[in-house]
Design a protein around this nucleic acid. Structure first.
Lengths: 125, 125
DNA sequence: TTATATGCAAAGCTTTTGCCTGAGT
DNA sequence: ACTCAGGCAAAAGCTTTGCATATAA
């Protein structure tokens, strides 16, 4: 694994993003810092960084894949009106994982929880 | 909303499937019953049926969208080795939804829970 | 030096859409 | 009859990949 400026840039951009950006958005943000970076490189590095566990892929039902700097177990919320994606702290998730493991006998390595609904602001109007 | 043989076929195929099939798989199964059905029609009807709440779209992190005949609140499990997707009964989900609603103030209309890991069989070897 | 990563562009998938025709009601 | 839905094929994303070049170790 080589240490390249491009990979560094992708990681820094994800780490600086709080909005669970898509690959395309990450690409645009990378280009602000490193104008010559290519889209293919961004995709390649997002994949590598996710495999290394440095960033996290988030699946947002029918709205493209997103990336998240926060690795630890937590849930996501997507507002079906404005489209925003927010972190939801959910401390009961570990309990949930454990109970499913013992009920099913499966080995669980990761859990994705997505709530869909209306956020504060959109609920208001 | 018109009642067509094609829409009926798509619904019947999803209702007869226990493996959370992709749109492509559903298309192939439809063609066994109705050889002239087109892929576009399958996509259109999957979308319509999901909006009507007759079937459910399931998001399986980086593995294409799937469809599910089971509407009620339940979780999914995907084996990262063999790729199978299974239902996981999780009765605590409603409690989880409620607690997130009261903690965040968001209105929650739907919840997707996906566990990723190794199933029984794959764990064994 | 040499093997890995990048840039660029083409290719691959999945899903959507336009347009004309066919079929419910 | 009047529309909505379907068939077909093209287009529209999004993501991956091949290949030549550049660069980290």
């Amino acid at each position: 694994m080589r240490n390249t400026a491009q990979r560094d840039t992708v990681l820094k951009v994800v780490e600086a993003s709080c909005d669970h950006p898509t690959a395309e958005t990450i690409y645009l943000r990378c280009r602000e810092i490193m104008p010559e970076i290519s889209l293919g490189t961004v995709y390649r590095n997002l994949k590598v960084l996710a495999e290394l566990g440095k960033i996290r892929e988030v699946s947002i039902l029918n709205a493209g894949d997103r990336y998240d700097k926060t690795i630890g177990l937590h849930a996501h919320f997507r507002c079906k009106r404005c489209g925003c994606v927010l972190d939801v702290p959910a401390n009961d998730l570990e309990t949930l994982e454990k109970s499913v493991e013992s009920n099913t006998g499966f080995q669980i390595d990761g859990t994705e929880v997505l709530f869909v609904g209306l956020c504060d602001k959109c609920k208001a109007n």
